[in-house]
Nucleic acid binder design. Structure first.
Lengths: 257, 257
DNA sequence: CGTTGCGTTGAATAAGGTCAAATAGAGTGG
DNA sequence: CCACTCTATTTGACCTTATTCAACGCAACG
């Protein structure tokens, strides 16, 4: 399909019209990617990462609102967020819908598809985004040659399991305020790890999507944002969030009840 | 106690001074294990499974109430349930506790530990049980030689992710009755896959553990069992469950609200 | 045969959900 | 640039669901 080089068959007419991406691609192989320490290559040696460069050569732009894949699509690749922001959600036969995760740069998407060779959730860009395509068969292949890559991949999957269990904990035991506090702290920490401010950021998702993820209704999310604001914990202006009292938010979590 | 063999002190057994278990072990290598099609070897060829036999040679008995591992324990092995029944749970600093899963024969436990080299949850036997110990370093090693084992292992991890996302869905969008109906149907289906009755079984866990898993209080679980019984969906006597109307339970799930 | 842990049931309460209305922004087309 | 539209958000009033608190029953066990 979308080869790494632009349709070589075409004459000059739209050679460039098609995208300058090639050049861009050269700059963004794993070995020189700024997300290297957050993404699949985490912990690999320079030499090992260079192997990865052969594997991850296709990138794909997804516009805001578009799906990267849908439940039921055949699984072929994993995707690393290169830039932008995604959500994943599940839809039940009866129409119920639950956001199962938000994904930011460096995070791997599509792990759900390995088990059945079909994706089991939908993944949608919440802003114009770009992903690195990791053909899974080739990842397994390469893992075979680069032992540390194999190990690293296992760790990525395991961490995803642990993350999901954390969400189960949140949904199973926490009250609405605690859930939202935990959510904000989690975002804060992840932005921080990517070199962004951990006290001030832009929410890419709607109140409804936050609510869906946290098992709450959008009105409840809105009310709690207002409450946190009254209490001086955060400042909220639509999607712009400023955390004023990180410790205060943390304290919300500590109290079993 | 119910050790299948007396302690190794027995004379003459020096060569196999190591335990009469050996005999037992021979009978229960993966290649001749009745759980073969449910467990890690699923889908592997006879020859491939025989490789696994070199790997999985230790088994371990865990008595009811004992932990297989605890959060924070160093991770070294995965465990396949050979017989019995387990639960996993997470405990937050503030004491909150959530059951994150129940495990029955053929299921793999310990995947949470790969990411950090420490277990992140506790896993406890709910009845006297036995597990097959799968040293993880050797599994990675062997996966390197037996490609299909590698693939199979990846599928196991991926399915665990999908399972967890199903639980997120349950906790995030379902009402109490739906949660319990889904829980019963899930158990039913898993018992069925193992050759047990799918309409009649024994719950190994308490109402509190069910509630913890489903994000409900034990009283709520109890009330809903009573309600289901009144409605003729199930017959409940303490931990003994008989499902009288599977379709009725399924119908509970279909209705978005 | 009392103790202990687990399960059931009832009544009161609180946390979130539902419904409805008002407001605020972002994007669009004139 | 402005009016208009559409969607997201906020807020209030009321309602439903599950929790809390408390009492009691049951079965297993020493």
């Amino acid at each position: 399909m979308n080869q790494q080089n632009p349709q070589t068959g075409r004459a000059g007419s739209d050679a460039s019209s098609h995208r300058t991406i090639n050049i861009h691609q050269l700059k963004t192989v794993c070995s020189s990617c700024s997300l290297r320490e957050l993404c699949l290559p985490m912990g690999l040696s320079q030499e090992e990462v260079e192997y990865l460069d052969q594997l991850v050569y296709t990138r794909k732009r997804i516009k805001r609102g578009e799906n990267l894949y849908r439940a039921g699509d055949p699984f072929g690749s994993l995707y690393a967020v290169r830039s932008g922001f995604f959500k994943s959600n599940l839809i039940l036969e009866d129409g119920r819908d639950q956001v199962t995760g938000f994904h930011m740069p460096g995070e791997i998407m599509g792990l759900d598809g390995i088990g059945t060779d079909d994706h089991t959730c939908n993944t949608t860009a919440l802003e114009d985004s770009e992903v690195c395509v990791i053909p899974f068969a080739r990842l397994e292949e390469l893992g075979h040659q680069v032992r540390n890559l194999q190990k690293q991949f296992h760790k990525v999957m395991s961490r995803e399991i642990v993350r999901d269990q954390g969400v189960m904990m949140l949904l199973g035991t926490m009250r609405a305020e605690e859930r939202l506090a935990a959510f904000l702290l989690n975002l804060s920490q992840r932005f921080n790890a990517r070199g962004y401010s951990h006290t001030e950021f832009h929410l890419r998702m709607t109140r409804e999507e936050i609510g869906s993820y946290l098992g709450l209704k959008l009105e409840t999310v809105s009310r709690i944002f207002s409450k946190f604001q009254e209490e001086g914990l955060v400042s909220v202006q639509q999607k712009h969030i400023r955390i004023l009292d990180t410790d205060g938010l943390k304290r919300m979590l500590g109290q079993a009840d």
